[in-house]
Design a protein around this nucleic acid. Sequence first.
RNA 1: GGUCUCGUGGCCGAGUGGCUAGGCACCGGUCUGCAAAACCGUAUACUCCGGUUCGAAUCCGGACGAGACCUCCA
Length: 489
Amino acid sequence: MNPTQALAIYNSLTGEKENFEPIIPGKVGMYVCGPTLYSEPHMGNMRTFINFDLIYRYFLHLGYQVKYVRNITDAGHITNSAGEAVDSIGKAARLEQVQSLEIVYKYNVKFQELQRIYNLLPPSIEPTATGHIQEQIEIIEKIIENGFAYIVNGSVYFDVRTYGKEFEYGILSGRKVDELAEETRELNAQDEKRFFADFALWKKAHPEDMQIWRSPWGDGNPGWHIECTAMSTKYLGDRFDIHGGGLDLKFPHHEDEIAQSCGSVGCNPANYWLHANMLNVNGQKMSKSLGNYFLPKEIVDGTTTVFDKPYLPQVIRFCMMQAHYRSTLDFTQDSLNAAEKGFMRLSEAYEKLGSLETKETSSVDVQALVDSFYNAMNDDFNAPMLVAGLFEAVKYINTVFEGKATISASDLKLLTKEFTGFVFDVLGLTIEKASSDQALTAAMDLVLDMRRSARENKDWGTSDKIRDRLAEAGIVVKDSKEGATWVVK
RNA sequence: GGUCUCGUGGCCGAGUGGCUAGGCACCGGUCUGCAAAACCGUAUACUCCGGUUCGAAUCCGGACGAGACCUCCA
């Protein structure tokens, strides 16, 4: 590795790019908020997970030993500001007339499948909220002990006002408690909370609840935020390097995690807070009501009506890599088609790498090119800049292939190592070999052989007829000096 | 209503106080029996109005527009 600049990360907590300094040299502890499994994760969820997969992969590429924890939220109780329980998993379970765990299990299987399809590296640990109820209770007890929470009628609430005397509530989101008071539209008059901004750590069970746990305060369910605090603390300690998640979790979820950690162990849990931006479709945030909502599996299968053709998962991933993780990204038919063609070009250049002829010297500064890959990623994981650098390499590879530029043996070795390293290991792309259908391949060999004979006899009529009829069947024939190749569209 | 972000060429999308991001499309060229494909190359931009500056699309202010969060959300 030859980065000419240090790894800088944009820290949402400070609003600035900071040089990355791990707590333990050579090691990284990273926690990312995973999905709530009350439905199949949609494409927008996937973008967040793909972006953090990129970050995970880059740390690994730099040689860090990474402990990557991404939780699974399988306890449905979440409370809104009015203190009302919103049990999304229980709701889904009732709708499908099954138990909560069945819902969670069903969607977890789908989520695992999606991770395979989109080539996500498995995290070091995927803990579940329901597996850490005891830890959550212990943290709540500690917060109560420290005076930052109170018990009302079997529920426990975090006391934001008392907390605010010692710590700063709103340190991450920039919200001020006073402002929040004015902004909040309506408060529930029946509220058990002492203050509108207080949030539930533990919620007393309702008779119709499908999942109930025992606690010192009676039967109930954990609050949403405490789940993440418990799991991150258990596996990464009171203080770790990176906490990530979608931008929409910044407030209140992450803000409340900070409050819970400060309120229990006295410090912000993470040194660097990273937030991945949202995915838009045709210019708008993906949503069911707008009709631009689709699942990661549907776009691959071509079963969504949003786009008129299927796309390979690696094309979708590549499309995402052309935008920075902190920017919104707009998926449109055009942007996906552009990514598809660009990805093909990248793939084809990769396949040429193995057959390049080397010369005494290189006509391009390969080391500088490789440095640009690292510098791009070291600048807050700027994948689009990396992709631009990779296309510089593509152009170079192509011109060498055409005999219009030269590369030395040592530079070719370097370029091959780093180019493939960044394409496969860092960006997480996969390049599939052409059709593995042996019967089709044999038939095509025969057809193209007959066409070649026709062409040798200047029988253009037959040659063109074969070409056109194959095109109608969805097979595109590409002629080149080395002969004809084909590809199924 | 409050807080915040953003507004880049036909599309997607980086970046920077003065030095061409990149991809796709377009156009030109090479190649080809023709075409496609492939490859190479050129062009097009920084919402508007003020201000700071030798110089701003890049900094500041305002206008307009878009989006996010404030309620579950990746």
